[in-house]
């Protein structure tokens, strides 16, 4: 296969599909690190392949490309993301509105502590890299995983959300934040620099505070 400067792992997979193995199944859409659909295991580590340069990860000119771990394989490099998004829902990772579109927008100070905590985790692209990197997800099929819990933490800190207590409850129930072992494999691998471990620690702390009566307003 031709080598090019700045060649990405996704370029390699695409070349193989176009020139060698037309039936190869894999996923991508944006090719610029926005959609989160191209994650695969590259030389043993989960990565976003469209933003991973071959020159950075090839070892002795070899690349081993596999599907993401911890999710059922559909075909070749494509995994079934359904369990990932189901966990997202189980963690109540969805916004509960309190206003209609006819009402004025809520005023939220960008420099307030909760907003800053929410902002730290809001840029998640749902790529599933952290989910694949996390050992607890592999050990415990019930565990919600870093991405869903990170999303829950952003909502617990979103003062506009109408059911923050519900989110906290969903995220700290069995298989929730308290199952995390603080390995930090999620932080090590998240391509956009999110720290799910920090958010999960926040959820643990918040659920403890809730228990002793010092919880969410």
């Amino acid at each position: 296969m031709p080598q090019r400067a700045n060649q990405t792992v996704l370029d390699v997979v695409t070349w193989i599909q176009r020139h060698a193995e037309p039936a190869l199944a894999y996923r991508f859409a944006c090719r610029v690190g926005v959609c989160g659909s191209c994650a695969m295991t590259v030389n043993g580590r989960p990565r976003w392949t469209c933003r991973t340069h071959v020159s950075r990860v090839a070892r002795e000119r070899r690349l081993r490309i596999e599907p993401l771990r911890n999710l059922p394989r559909l075909k070749d490099l494509a995994v079934d993301m359904t369990p990932f998004f189901e966990k997202w829902q189980r963690a109540q990772g969805r916004f509960t509105p309190t206003r209609t579109r006819a009402e004025p927008m809520a005023a939220v100070r960008p420099d307030s502590a909760p907003r800053r905590a929410a902002d730290a985790g809001i840029e998640c692209i749902n790529c599933g890299v952290c989910h694949a990197a996390c050992d607890v997800v592999g050990w415990d099929p019930d565990y919600l995983g870093p991405a869903a819990l990170n999303r829950a933490w952003t909502l617990v800190n979103d003062v506009r959300d109408g059911d923050r207590h519900g989110v906290l409850k969903a995220a700290s129930a069995g298989g929730g934040c308290h199952s995390c072992h603080t390995h930090g494999s999620c932080v090590e691998h998240c391509p956009v620099g999110i720290n799910p471990t920090a958010g999960i620690a926040g959820l643990k702390r918040q659920s403890l505070l809730d228990l002793v009566g010092g919880g969410l307003p």
Binding site: R45, A133, H183, G184, S185
Partner: peptide, 14 residues
């Protein structure tokens, strides 16, 4: 060790 595990946080757990 699996490459994805080779970082201080995982070693601390072990």
């Amino acid at each position: 060790i699996r490459p994805a595990r080779n970082h201080p946080g995982f070693w601390a757990f072990v």
